[in-house]
Design a protein around this nucleic acid. Structure first.
Lengths: 275, 275
DNA sequence: CAAATAGTGTCTCTAAGACAATATCAC
DNA sequence: GTGATATTGTCTTAGAGACACTATTTG
């Protein structure tokens, strides 16, 4: 016992060389497009928060929000703190994506990054309002596997279009990894991180678990359906969607009226799943 | 351009405090039990490689193999190197489990760990033979959710029994995390890492992808079935298992004879999945 | 009324589970 | 023949997809 105390007292971690560690966060929200007709429901778009880098390296290019892990916090807490500092919102959900540790991924030196997906709800987005600076913006996401293992990732904000190309490595094994063919003017290896984050988000959206976090506490089933369709880039028949989520939601007494069609009952998430 | 060069030249990462980073590996194999009758197939057991710690802290206790990330390698390469140093075998598969970064998880100081699952094939295990030292041993694994969110993890090697209790946190969201209720004489937070690793392995075994890596290149379908049943702790009717893996395997011309029953055709993994 | 979404019921098809039946070896 | 696994075929059932039909609102 005493020998262990003595050992720990004399132990010096500084004998080993250590990397710097950062957490990077891919924060997604569902953005609304204005509808063409007054009675049509809004079209949804999956959007990603990017920050324009003010300093070197990659100055002026777009990057994921993130920052260095500080003593006394976990990597998850670091990710939450960073997204909070950028959006002034504590996300409902945060999910790990993976560790990115290529030795040359950061020109500043030996810096490895733990990546996370976070989900920003519609309510939170409204609270944020428009950021005063133009260095943090929501980009509309398009991510499609053209053919085989090659994916193209396109991020659009106004006239700014970032277009990256990636190859999926060892498909079908654990979490997918991507190799960057063209970084599309994204900083660091963030194109690969975003691609992995999208894969995680899509896989999670399949289980009707993460999708609730994009919406306010009460929502219509068609809004919920649009969220899932937007994330996964699929389309489902409303009748079937209702049947499939029926176990995850419960009715409220409220209705959403005032659109040019039949009012929709508002639902809330059911915490206790049924058999 | 020049300003970026100048910036990088003067940049000092050492201004920030940095953690040490390790990779820990949960290496699994399928161990054979002797069969009670000459014609019965062997019973399989999922086994995990543990190392008895020779030094402080946790001296004499059992821990996952692992070690410090070195400059110039990725965390995956570090994990592969560590398992190679312990078993003299390069595993077929390695999958990320998560980052463990509680500030007080290591009494030596600020050390975070990236955890991986690796799979050691039967062929490789045979090559290793018996390790000369008794400080690396394969433990039989039992991992069962008693009730609700409480799981008990029991590792057995001969008369050594390590029995840990864990609580699953935020179930159903991304990768499961476990809180240690009783570490069962495992070093550090390795009980939680092992529980997470088992969850990842079980999820992966469902997709008929990881399970091939436990076996030699050719195998009988019942051996493959036993692997999946062993990992997931389930039992499937042979007829149904055959139907479900039929798309992932292809026949060879070889048969496995010499047991007290009908010879079994040997199969190999099919790389190109059918429609 | 027209346009649009909300919501229900039901048919079909497929994949998984259950089970029965046959095949083939070593002893 | 006996005891075991190997292998095939089929019945049943649960769940997803397709689709038809009704309900309700606002301009």
């Amino acid at each position: 016992m005493d020998s262990e105390k003595a050992f720990l007292a004399s132990y010096r971690l500084s004998d080993y060389e250590r990397p710097s560690v950062t957490a990077d966060v891919a924060a997604f929200r569902i953005g609304n497009e204005d509808s063409p007709s007054y009675r049509k429901n809004p079209e949804n778009k999956l959007q990603l928060l990017l920050i324009r880098r003010g300093g070197h390296p990659f100055k002026g290019m777009w990057a994921l929000p993130g920052g260095f892990l500080q003593k006394g916090e976990t990597l998850e807490q670091c990710a939450l703190r960073e997204i909070r500092e950028e959006t002034n919102v504590l996300p409902v959900s945060i999910m790990p994506v993976g560790v990115f540790s290529e030795p040359d991924r950061d020109p500043r030196g030996w810096i490895i990054s733990g990546a996370y997906v976070s989900i920003i709800s519609e309510e939170s987005v409204r609270q944020i309002g428009q950021d005063d600076a133009d260095d943090a913006q929501w980009f509309s996401v398009s991510f499609d596997g053209g053919g085989q293992n090659v994916f193209s990732l396109t991020l659009t904000h106004g006239s700014t279009v970032l277009s990256a190309k990636l190859a999926e490595e060892s498909p079908g094994f654990g979490r997918p990894r991507f190799r960057i063919l063209d970084s599309g003017r994204l900083a660091f290896d963030h194109a690969a991180i975003i691609a992995s984050a999208l894969s995680v988000l899509r896989a999670e959206a399949k289980n009707y678990e993460a999708i609730f976090d994009f919406l306010p506490e009460t929502f219509t089933l068609s809004a919920l359906q649009r969220v899932q369709e937007t994330i996964m880039n699929i389309s489902v028949l409303p009748a079937n969607f209702r049947r499939m989520v029926s176990g995850y939601v419960e009715e409220t007494d409220e209705y959403q009226r005032g659109n040019g069609h039949r009012p929709a009952k508002l639902y809330r998430r059911r915490t206790q799943h049924p058999v």
